[in-house]
Simulated assay, not measured.
Amino acid sequence: MVNIVKRMRKLRELLWIRVGPGALLLPKEVSKITLEFNKHINGGHRGARKFWREMLPRIKYRNPSVPISVMRHSNDSGPAKLCIYTKSASAPNPSQSSISTPPSATPNPRNTATPDTTAPAFTIDMKMIPESQILEELIEKTGATIIEPSEQELQEMKDIADFKVRSEGDRVQVREHLMKQRREEELLRLARGEITATA
Rank of each mutant, 00 (worst) to 15 (best):
S95L: 14
K60T: 08
K10N: 09
I41L: 07
Y85I: 01
R46F: 04
P64W: 05
E131H: 09
L188Y: 06
G78Y: 03
P103D: 06
R171V: 07
G22L: 01
E186Q: 10
P109W: 05
K32W: 02
G78T: 01
K50L: 15
N3E: 08
S77F: 11
T142D: 04
R183H: 06
H73P: 05
H40P: 01
T101Q: 13
I17K: 06
L190H: 03
L26C: 02
R12Y: 06
I160V: 09
A105E: 09
L138K: 01
M71T: 15
L25D: 07
P109M: 06
E151Q: 09
E13W: 07
K10I: 05
G193I: 07
V66F: 02
T101S: 15
L187Y: 02
I195A: 05
S98A: 14
K180M: 13
D162M: 12
D170P: 04
V165G: 02
R175C: 04
E131Y: 03
S69F: 06
F163L: 11
E153Q: 15
P109R: 07
L35P: 00
S88D: 10
T114E: 10
R58W: 04
I129R: 03
K141P: 00
L154Q: 15
S65Y: 08
L188Q: 14
H45F: 01
E131F: 02
L15F: 05
S150V: 05
P67R: 02
G143D: 05
H40D: 12
C83S: 15
S97V: 06
S88P: 02
D162F: 09
M1H: 13
P103R: 09
I4M: 15
S104H: 09
I134Q: 01
E151A: 10
M71S: 13
A105F: 06
T142Y: 03
A113V: 12
L14T: 12
S77E: 13
Q133P: 01
R18W: 07
N93S: 11
D76I: 09
L56C: 05
K127L: 08
K6N: 14
L56W: 00
K32T: 03
K164L: 08
